[in-house]
Nucleic acid binder design. Sequence first.
DNA 1: CTATTTCGTCATGCCGATTGACAAATTAGT
DNA 2: ACTAATTTGTCAATCGGCATGACGAAATAG
Lengths: 408, 408
Amino acid sequence: MTTELPGNGGFGDPAFLPNTQQGIRRRNLSLVLQAITAHGPLSRAAVASRIGLTRAAVSTLVDELIRADLLIELGPERPGTVGRPGSALTVGERGPVGIGAEIGVDHLAVCAVDLHGKVRARASLESDNRGRPPEPVLKELARLVREVTTASRSAGLRPAGLAVAVPGLVARDSHTVVRAPNLGWSELDLGPYLLDGLPLSVDNEANLGALAELWIGGDPAPQDFVHVSAEIGIGAAVVVGGRLLRGTHGFAGELGHMPVRPEGPACPCGGRGCLEQYAGEEAVLRAAGLPYGEGGIGLLAARAENGDAQVRRALRAAGSALGIALSGAVNLLDPQTVVLGGALSRLAPWLLPSLERELARRTADPARPKGGTVTVSRLGSEGPLLGAAHSVVRAVLDDPASVAGAQR
Amino acid sequence: MTTELPGNGGFGDPAFLPNTQQGIRRRNLSLVLQAITAHGPLSRAAVASRIGLTRAAVSTLVDELIRADLLIELGPERPGTVGRPGSALTVGERGPVGIGAEIGVDHLAVCAVDLHGKVRARASLESDNRGRPPEPVLKELARLVREVTTASRSAGLRPAGLAVAVPGLVARDSHTVVRAPNLGWSELDLGPYLLDGLPLSVDNEANLGALAELWIGGDPAPQDFVHVSAEIGIGAAVVVGGRLLRGTHGFAGELGHMPVRPEGPACPCGGRGCLEQYAGEEAVLRAAGLPYGEGGIGLLAARAENGDAQVRRALRAAGSALGIALSGAVNLLDPQTVVLGGALSRLAPWLLPSLERELARRTADPARPKGGTVTVSRLGSEGPLLGAAHSVVRAVLDDPASVAGAQR
DNA sequence: CTATTTCGTCATGCCGATTGACAAATTAGT
DNA sequence: ACTAATTTGTCAATCGGCATGACGAAATAG
């Protein structure tokens, strides 16, 4: 009983399967399941034509998935066309769920998400975790996890893994938080607290927020985008071709230190005029004339909603700076869209106009019809939690055989 | 009958093969061939353990590849260890070659590269192609191509495809040059001139230069890097996980319009203070006190080599600007390395110090041990040509069955 | 009511990888 | 020198898994 999810390290990487016959089988199981989760209820014939296999082959694959409680048969489709109607297949109500957990600076949250992508159970707790020692926090989180898993189990669901979103840097393919400045944690292995039988994975919350956007963010979900959030500093996550770009050392997405004005104020990073000096939480609060302390972003949003002119001015300036920095990213990556997520989505109404103006101006290449569009995440601050739970679901979709073997 | 996996076609993207038995076979042929080209001569057993198949399976695959003239048997390996020595396999001397062609502003070049990566034939022609009508240029190029293909054929080699590097924007999966400002071409289909039996592909020269770096640029070749060249404007190509990032509209890599000083001089792109205003060919020549005309970069290099102080100063300033822009890219992407390629490699001695200083200063995050390193391409201005030829070779490596079927 | 179309399943066959055994070729040990 | 051990490459037999083609079932079209 290994503690890692089957086949590989991080949740993001699809398992490497050798080109052997069993490998083919596993990949085909995954293709069938993914086609059905992605494109609603489908008949066997529809799946077959979609993934390029024959109906007979799909039939055996579907049988296997049904036996594993991953699919259920809805019965005959409503016939709109000639021919015998197919039998609609969809993912079952009772089957595996992914457990997602989030350690925020002022709250803990856990949820269970099924293969449909629906939240089936959740629990959360307000608690100021800044500078608090890790032990009690993690014990509380473990309690919430148990709450959600038992609730799931009694609803006939089978937790398939636990993924934790952390506001900090996480060592690749490990359970270790390297550094979480807002919590004051460093070099902390979460395994001992959270490993109770479930495969565990830990990842940065900005990354998971971006993945949530990729998996459930839109219809259709964008496959190439830059996701900007502002949980710790200003984090961006880059998704290319439906895959999260993590970088060689795992540091990709440091939008906060993009140069905005090369001779601007010095930044602790060693550079000058980094974006964080203009659009970072501290800088914006100072420009808005507000104290730097807890709940800064919420305070900004509240004041802006009330029409505070100085706050709105500060947000406009921050939007401009963001636009300048993002224009660099857009010119370099040519993404489908830029997504404002996390806490930024609340501030979007005041950031967007200046941001979009600056971005449009600087990406209007004569050859490029139009610069990237900017969208605001529907998920808001729920992104990281949902992304965590979904990362477990994706692992199941990527290799259904693994959970099918685990059960009966 | 449509498959939903990402459609493709260009040489760069490995062909999508369905998870059917023939698909497996083709993938396994590719795995065997790639293992052998990548890791020197190998025995069947070594290949088997490397790609996760059994020796028996590899034997049949190797037989097929030998019959197709893609592999040859070198005979028994020198035994350094216990056990029967294996029989070394390597790619054959006579087999398929990729034909690469380059349309530069002042020259045409064609070469043939075998599966080893060795150049087996080449031809080139100096000619000032700026503003020249396409017909005569392409007729000359076609002549060079015929020269190289006949030379290859008489050496027992089999041309497997033609790839053309063009200094301009190319429509995806087509033979059409959308816009090549330095040549004065636009909306031009190269197919009619160059299609004489060989599969044809056309791509941007900066992209092909970056791919050359990926495929033959180093030992080991980096898999995640930003490749900067300066053929048209300042082009960067981003390679992530061994794949070229092309962007949603094919515009990725526009480093030239990264903001360096947001209030700087206006740029034709509509922005202000873009990198091109500081490190573009025209700007550098002006700062160096040289006329803007043909051979600008060569002139700069010659003067700098002779110790011209004003030129060197101009290059130092350009290096700083490049460093600022690249620090943004490095912060965002966390690449293994930044590669200076194309004509920039000649200027590297004078660009590098200021570039590296600026880059190091702005990427020294407390958490990041060190910023990205900067390297200079070994390939220099040969990159695009070699990359073009190699793109054909890669297509063969990615699907050996395609050429194996073609011959017999 | 019949012809047509499409769906799901079944028996059969084939392709290709695995298994297990074997001879061959080398090293290590006595 | 001789044996034991190890590794390679190949062969025959087997098995897993998809394709093929035919069939009954369930709908529509006329």
